[in-house]
Design a protein around this nucleic acid. Structure first.
Lengths: 227, 227
DNA sequence: GCGGGGCATCAGGGTTGCGTCAAGGACGTC
DNA sequence: GACGTCCTTGACGCAACCCTGATGCCCCGC
């Protein structure tokens, strides 16, 4: 769940924001002054901060700088000041967006979504899904198989087949489904393809290919991957 | 130098933006309609896009979607419409910021700086900037490759390709992804480009180009950089 | 015991994909 | 206008992959 930190000293605005955010399944923390805000940010590590610049204890820009000293969390500034200088100062201090009061809740939420989306891990992040068995290790994202300390090379078809099986770990995958997912929708009866490629996968990955422990045949039905 | 793509069909606004941006040492491209914008974005790979929603040939939101199909480049929307719905639609389509006309140039530039700053490489530190292998050293930030005590010269396309591969060290990068990231979204099947440029990279960087240790071919799928 | 269906394994051949080289053309520089 | 660099494109040999058929095994029903 996305965590939002709301910082505002006007209770009615804070309340409105909190209600709207919680209704949209955000996890919300709230602070009414800068010191509390910095403390909460450090303790709770929010995914995005909504910050009113007019705080009782310190300048809003100082809060931004305080945050930027250690985090790149998106900061969405809220302010009654329309002055261009204020905006420039806040943005250059490290704010990500600047919304002037009064604001439309729809717009604010859209800007919030944009800020959160931007901060999401890049496509090439390391959200690798790794599946381990006693005999080998599969990294689906990197398309890598490790076994006995060395990489195993698989052909595209072998990968495709392994991919479908591993994504259904423990479940039986029917022959027809395997054929259609790997070879295309017009296939469904060419079970000999499966036999050939299952044999290759076993030869490359199983400790004892003729007595497979991970690529199990379910006669007449399909195959199952067990780790 | 930061490259900006300005998309607007009103010449006076475009001119004002271009002049201001160039004065601040930005590298500026300009387009007056959506088709040109998409084409220029693919060809020039800007670091940020300033996009007017009111274009003659297509809906601005379509331009956003067209860009988001293949790139996360920051998009700063410019529009005469103040309606909340328009803003929400543009932001949810993938825009990063939304500024209504008339706008203050100072504010716009500050928002632009914020957008560019955000897109900078993650603050992981400087441990990722330099990648070392047994044969050579790559400095992605400085755009330098060192090998056997001397600098290796790479062409822009070679750099781009190396960049994508190194940023995905250890991971397989599909040929379609490589083509689209290096040559643009309209490419995807021209695998001969890859073959030619991979050969050049290998010739310049590998100790034994015909038996590559770092630029690994995965037949039928793509390439992988290993250090 | 006998026959049949489904499965594992192997080996061959057609086809695809890769590496390499070289030539042509666009672009910028001097 | 000549030159050099870079990108594109085509052709060729070669290796790898995918498909296919043949063979033999095991399990099961008759």
């Amino acid at each position: 769940m996305t965590r939002v930190l709301v910082v505002d000293d006007e209770p009615q605005i804070t309340r409105a924001l909190v209600i709207n955010l919680k209704a949209r399944k955000y996890d919300v923390d709230a602070a009414s002054d800068g010191a509390t805000a910095l403390q909460l940010a450090a303790a709770r590590h929010p995914d995005v901060v909504v910050l009113d610049l007019g705080l009782p204890d310190m300048d809003g820009v100082e809060v931004i700088k305080g945050l930027r000293g250690w985090t790149r969390v998106p900061i969405l500034v809220l302010s009654a000041r329309h002055s261009s200088d204020e905006k420039v100062e806040a943005l250059d201090a490290g704010a990500d967006d600047y919304v002037t009061k009064p604001f439309g809740m729809d717009e604010l939420l859209a800007r919030l979504r944009a800020a959160v989306r931007r901060a999401e891990p890049t496509g090439g992040g390391e959200d690798d899904v790794i599946v381990e068995t006693a005999a080998f290790t599969v990294d689906l994202a990197a398309k890598k198989v490790h076994r006995d300390g060395r990489d195993v090379r698989l052909t595209p078809t072998e990968w495709h087949l392994l991919d479908v099986l591993v994504r259904n770990t423990g479940r039986l995958v029917g022959q027809r489904q395997l054929l259609q997912e790997v070879w295309g929708p017009s296939y469904g009866t060419e079970t000999n393809y499966l036999r050939v490629y299952m044999a290759q996968l076993r030869r490359k990955l199983e400790a004892d290919p003729s007595h497979p422990k991970h690529f199990i045949t379910e006669p007449g039905m399909g195959y199952r991957f067990e780790r």
